[in-house]
């Protein structure tokens, strides 16, 4: 029951460490932490403040402290400009849909695979595991071209009947990113910390393996689920290169491609800042709202790595 012991210890440690670190509760300690806040926060503050300034002022302020102050002619013009230029709600809807579906499918597909690899015994298990771990390191960018060529040959069946080629669809923005070696790896590691005695007891009770996965292992894996969800969501939300290549219809484009809408012959930097703020803030808000659960979840799954 190692995991339980570890968990109990974990629960107490925050307190204990807190007591130990009372020396750090000095002015110096705060100063250091606040300086670090500036380091990490200022660029984003610059983005948000610039989104309220006219283009010329953004560039006039760069290089002085004014860049980080809400001074000058503040206006919402950039935001109205964004809505004139980009079908924002459509893009937002697309990105939410693409990200949420990628996350949902990814959780199911990868956790099932990890369960099979980690908890079931069959021939070829190690080979499959080795292949998965080997693909962990392949960056998507270098596969984009062959993948583009290949998805254009894939069949699809939908309401309009049978078709060949996936370009310009939602699925081409989702399905390639569902199965993920890193997610499988995280689930695999996490499942490993769940005592096998639980499974064995269930087997004695006559439960099937899938039922064990569904009713015992997954319910204990909240942290891993949250971690994988987050790590799948961020790249899905931020995807840029791939949609450029595979989407031709405006009504299927995700938010990140929208940035290019502002890079006309006269680049509207104020509007870019506004748009960047608009597509970043929802993610930040989501993060701030769930930050405790979020960090704790990474914390408790990461440790198993």
């Amino acid at each position: 029951m190692t995991a339980h012991v570890a968990e109990n210890i974990g629960r107490h440690s925050a307190l204990a460490v807190g007591r130990r670190a009372s020396a750090g509760r000095t002015v110096g300690g705060y100063a250091l932490r606040i300086v670090l806040c500036l380091v990490f926060g200022l660029p984003l503050l610059f983005m948000i403040l610039s989104s309220f300034k006219p283009d010329l002022e953004i560039f006039a302020d760069v290089g002085s402290v004014r860049a980080f102050l809400p001074v000058g002619h503040l206006t919402l013009d950039n935001y109205t400009g964004v809505f004139d230029r980009v079908p924002f709600w459509q893009f937002l809807f697309n990105s939410v849909l693409i990200s949420v579906v990628t996350v949902a499918l990814g959780l199911v597909v990868n956790s099932m695979a990890a369960y099979a690899l980690g908890r079931l015994r069959f021939r070829g298990r190690k080979v499959i595991l080795a292949v998965i771990l080997a693909t962990l390191i392949v960056p998507f960018e270098v596969l984009a071209l062959p993948l583009l060529w290949w998805v254009n040959k894939l069949p699809w069946l939908d309401a309009n009947g049978f078709s060949l080629g996936w370009l310009d669809t939602y699925q081409v923005q989702i399905l390639p990113f569902v199965a993920n070696a890193f997610s499988i790896f995280l689930f695999y590691q996490y499942f490993d910390s769940i005592p096998k005695e639980l499974d064995e007891a269930a087997v004695v009770d006559g439960a099937g393996f899938f039922r064990i996965y569904r009713t015992i292992v997954m319910p204990l894996s909240g942290p891993a689920i949250a971690t994988v969800a987050i790590l799948t969501f961020l790249p899905a939300w931020n995807s840029y290169l791939w949609p450029l290549m595979v989407v031709q219809s405006e009504n299927l484009r995700p938010v990140m491609v929208g940035i290019d809408y502002f890079k006309q012959l006269n680049v509207s930097w104020g509007q870019i800042m506004a748009y960047a703020t608009m597509i970043t803030v929802p993610v930040l808000a989501l993060f701030i709202a769930f930050q405790r659960a979020f960090i704790n979840s990474i914390a408790s799954s990461g440790v198993k790595g």
Partner: peptide, 16 residues
Amino acid sequence: GLAAVAALGLLAGCGK
């Protein structure tokens, strides 16, 4: 997720 994928077919139809 599965329902969404099914729905995608329809949406994609419009998109195309």
